[in-house]
C-alpha cells in the first residue's frame, strides 16, 4: 500500500466513531430530566460563566515549545545523515546545540521555567 491509502484509515476511523455514535443516539432508551443535562459540578449549580478569561501559566512554555519543536524538526534530517555526514555534521550540530542550549539556559536563569 502506498501513502495515499492513509485516507482509508481516516475514513475507517470516522465510520467507526460515527457509526457508534449514530447507533448510540438511536437505540438506547432515553429519559428526560432537567438536572441531567446540567454540567457536573459536584451537584451544585454552576456559579458564573465557565468560559472566562482563564489565567494559565503556559504561555511561556508554548513559546519555548515552538522554539524547541522547530528544532526537533530540523534535527530529524540531520539525524538521518549523521552516520554518513561524518565530522562536519557533528561539528555543525554542536554549534546548533550550543546556541539552543544557551537559549534554554537563558530561559532557566530568567525563571521562565517556573509555572506561575
Amino acid at each position: 500500500m502506498n501513502s495515499e491509502s492513509l485516507i482509508l484509515f481516516f475514513i475507517v476511523a470516522v465510520v467507526l466513531v460515527g457509526g457508534a455514535l449514530i447507533f448510540s443516539s438511536l437505540v438506547p432508551p432515553k429519559s428526560f430530566n432537567p438536572q441531567k443535562s446540567e454540567p457536573y459540578e459536584c451537584g451544585i449549580p454552576t456559579q458564573g460563566k465557565t468560559w472566562l478569561q482563564f489565567n494559565v501559566g503556559y504561555y511561556l512554555f508554548a513559546i519555548l515549545f515552538l522554539i524547541f519543536d522547530v528544532e526537533t524538526v530540523f534535527l530529524f534530517p540531520w539525524a538521518v545523515i549523521m552516520k554518513t555526514g561524518g565530522i562536519a555534521a557533528f561539528v555543525e550540530i554542536i554549534i546548533f546545540f550550543t546556541i539552543l542550549g544557551l537559549g534554554l539556559l537563558y530561559a532557566w536563569k530568567k525563571r521562565a521555567l517556573i509555572w506561575e
Binding site: 437505540v27 432508551p29 441531567k36 454540567p39
Partner: peptide, 11 residues
C-alpha cells in the same frame, strides 16, 4: 454502547 448519550446544557 447501550447507554444514553446525555446532552449538556450550553455545551
Amino acid at each position: 454502547l447501550m447507554k444514553e448519550l446525555i446532552p449538556i446544557n450550553k455545551a
